[in-house]
Amino acid sequence: MLIATLSLPEQVVLMLAALILLSSFLMLAQVRLDSMINTFALQGLLLFFATLIMALISGKYQLLISAALTLFLKVFFIPNKLRGLVVRLDINREIESITNPSLIMLFAASLVLFSYYVALPIRALSLLATRNTIAISLAVVLIGMLMIISRRKAVTQVVGFMSMENGLFFAAVVATCGMPMVVELGIAFDVLVAAILFGVFFFHIRTEIGSLDTDRLNHLTEVEK
């Protein structure tokens, strides 16, 4: 299927898919917490537009509800909540050092290739014109995972987790025109509850170990040896 054979809205969805992947890469490279949260909100916005366009071209209007949920939760509510947390924890100006950033970027690029090969047989099952984006959404999930692995600060790990969920949601929207409404509502509220719970956890982690560096949870004793 050549891109030239698609209609303009479908081309826009493919474009948005590529932009979502780019925002994942940007999040992976971002060292400042506030700009990372902004990038996360941007990814949510792109996801909202993709869902909106998919709802309009497929005629499945329940996707509009998902789009509205995405807009409310992932563009406004969760980023605002995270921003507030970061300000209250007084780490909004903090810079997190990434060990070997270029290696991680290359690893993320190879993850994209990997998900392309993994998604080849899955893609054959879907009949939608936008099925090529399954590989992209899988890559977004894997890059979110990579972010959780490669970062040490709890807040960035949470953002990575949320962007993993973005990838899953995007896969559901573009490959099958959305999950059943019950599932979707369930996941949306799970994420919402997770965001609130994480906020509580941040405070607990900090009061327990005096920092948000999750590497220090590996130590068994409080005294550095």
């Binding site: 493919l14 898919a17 992947l21 890469f25 490279a29 994209v112 392309y116």
Partner: peptide, 14 residues
């Protein structure tokens, strides 16, 4: 990364 993404989105999407 941008150029690489361009190449990959050509292969994957187009």
């Amino acid at each position: 990364i941008l150029s690489l993404l361009g190449m990959m989105s050509h292969i994957i999407l187009e």
